[in-house]
Amino acid sequence: MIQVKGVRKSFGKNEVLKGVDLNVKKGEVVVILGPSGSGKTTLLRCVNFLEIADDGDLTIGDLSVRFKHATKKEILRVRRRTAMVFQNYNLFNNKNAIENVMEGLVTARKVPAADAYATAKKELDKVGLSDKYDAYPSQLSGGQQQRVAIARAVSLNPEVILFDEPTSALDPELVGEVLAVMRAVAREGITMIVVTHEMSFAHDIADHVVFMDAGVIVEEGTPKEIFTNPREARTKQFLDRILLKYDYSI
């Protein structure tokens, strides 16, 4: 179970997160929606300590830390229980696909190289890249790179995987393959927190949808509640706009 309580974060004078609470149950898929600048990406980055939040608490399983006072050791412990998939993939440019997946296992988790290799192979096969073990990031398409990144995250067997707009940087024709892999990950029962604009994914896969705007959570509920019967005007407005823009039929 992951619990975020009262997280605040400012960049200079600009307060991006104004006290956000989020509860994620084990095995749940939570999708965070919201207009750009609403703070949803910052929230994810705070959970992974890529940004240090100004205030608030984080609980992952039996591990509790205060954002502000977290020691280096605690940060490392949190990071080893979480994994992240980035908008622009961030594969290690100096490593090929299989080495990218192995890196965290071997260096951070101290898994023997042979075992790590077997795990990495298995995960790459699962994302449909069994023919790309030796390919370097520059030789892969965006969709393939993102699938390697997902394999890298899954292989670490984290308590939660954080997806930060995983399909936003992709060409439209490559979005489908990445979403398919994410669906498969969700079906495995892995806890996921996903920031995305893909409404169909949110609708079909999410157990819980959170709508954020201007640094606060405006509304949350099941996909059905949010999509068919939003309570707040801001949610309705956002959904009307985005559904019009993306022209998805739900």
Binding site: N48, F49, L50, L76, R79, R80, T82, A83, M84, F86, N88, N90, L91, F92, N93, N94, K95, E103, G104, T107, A108, R109, A149, R152, A153, L156, L162
Partner: peptide
Amino acid sequence: VPDGQYEACFSIGLTRGQALRSIVIPQ
């Protein structure tokens, strides 16, 4: 070396020293 490379290192639980050694310095 782009910041994203550091972030990816941290996200999979590498320490700064490990990130430097196996990812940043080679690049």
